[in-house]
Amino acid sequence: MSAAIKPVRPFGDFLRVLIAPAIWFAHFSLVYAAEALICIGPPADQATMMGWIAVLVTAAALTGLIILAARLLRSGNTAPSRSDRSEAWLRRTSLLLTLLSALGVVWTTLPTAVLPACAL
């Protein structure tokens, strides 16, 4: 019956669950926009530029996801409040989303290794 007295968990704790898919979306938008912008530029070097951008953006996204996953795993081990169900639940949900997002990032990047930039 202590429902009203306990400090309220801010909604931001839920929004943090969305960080991983947001990283996927940012990665997706960046490579798509990069391809669109590179293709209106001069034809020379399009392929190399796209390659570099893909590598950089993907590395950034994956690093972000790995850091996220590491933090989630660590806080799972050290969290003193084992009893805090919401905390644990949100953390495990985040972890799984991080995994799916990483797969999404890898899939998005896969074609850049095979297809030349800007070819119709």
Partner: peptide
């Protein structure tokens, strides 16, 4: 619609990703 093949494949990848859930 004649969008570059690489752009199309990004969306192809996302279409695969959405099959997982």
């Amino acid at each position: 619609t004649g969008i570059p093949a690489l752009s199309l494949s990004f969306f192809s990848a996302a279409s695969m990703a959405v099959a997982l859930p």
